[in-house]
């Protein structure tokens, strides 16, 4: 700090705490709603302090039938689906991006630049804008209602390939020269040198991609019709629709809470990696 101004410091802290209050308010309200019983949640004004029904709601949501009167999978099943999708997307992206970036950086081969541009183009097309034809392709391949259909079309992204390319370019050339003198072939070099040297970048990217995968909404909404394949994030919308008939806000908000916890936990627990991943992938 440049100068000592106690009043300004106090103002700083007040503003930051206010900011946190604004940012946290929706989450707090969600949490509070998840701790009351269904009846209390139909009376305005809704409570602002936690109630005593947290465990009850928790158990009913996670293991019970969930929202009564709807045809949806139990929440634990949806959490499992989300986990599978998020893991397949993030690990799949990391794997194919690592090897393609390795090929592009460390080999000189015909059409190298052609492949590079082909990958570059994909960077430009988020799934939302080519949603209908992509859906048709997946349907034609018989991948609807499967984990493969949920994850594979989202796996190819140029962002990860670009980031790894960037990382590999910062590995000194002498590493490769030294490894060649030591007698390491391409794959050996990849496993023994490149992967260990990119460890933190891989972890950082994993944090970002896990959140990206977990939070997918439109894509799973389109390609899963089977309730067994529903992901937790999708289910919120169905519950909101159901709420118009039979409002059970305590269960809906508990589900929302459960849907938020894994990605929020990942961000908070791996904050340093998360910040690194965020700033690197957008470079």
């Amino acid at each position: 700090m440049v100068e000592n101004r106690p009043i300004l410091n106090i103002v700083s802290h007040i503003v930051l705490i206010l900011g946190i209050a604004i940012v946290a308010l929706p989450i707090w309200i969600t949490f509070v709603a998840a701790t009351h019983d269904a009846v209390r949640m139909t009376q305005a004004p809704i409570p602002l302090l936690p109630g005593s029904h947290f465990w009850e709601n928790f158990q009913q949501t996670l293991w019970g039938s969930g929202l009564s009167g709807t045809e949806i999978a139990p929440v634990w099943r949806m959490l499992l689906n989300s986990l599978a999708m998020a893991m397949m997307i993030s690990l799949g992206k990391i794997a194919i991006s690592l090897i393609s970036a390795f090929a592009i950086v460390y080999f000189k081969f015909p059409f190298r630049m052609g492949f590079f541009w082909l990958i570059f183009i994909t960077l430009m097309l988020p799934v939302e804008v080519r949603i209908l034809p992509t859906f048709e392709v997946v349907a034609d391949l018989g991948m609807l209602n499967s984990y493969w259909g949920l994850s594979v079309p989202l796996i190819a992204s140029a962002t990860a390939t670009f980031m790894f390319r960037q990382v590999f370019l910062t590995i000194p050339d002498e590493m490769l020269e030294s490894a060649r003198i030591d007698g390491a072939g391409p794959m050996r070099f990849f496993w023994d040198i490149v992967i260990p040297l990119s460890r933190t970048n891989i972890a950082a990217l994993f944090v970002i991609l896990f959140i990206y995968g977990w939070n997918q909404y439109l894509w799973p909404l389109l390609i899963t019709t089977d309730t067994d394949m529903t992901t937790i994030v999708m289910s919120i919308k169905q519950m909101l629709e159901a709420a118009e008939q039979s409002p059970q806000w305590n269960i809906i908000m508990m589900t929302a809470l459960l849907a938020m916890i894994p990605p929020v936990f990942v961000v908070v627990a791996m904050q340093k990696l998360f910040v690194q991943g965020l700033t690197e992938t957008d470079k």
Binding site: M175, E177, S178, I193
Partner: peptide, 9 residues
């Protein structure tokens, strides 16, 4: 090598 090229990990 000039920068030694030791494998850092």
């Amino acid at each position: 090598f000039q920068n030694y090229a030791l494998y850092p990990h």
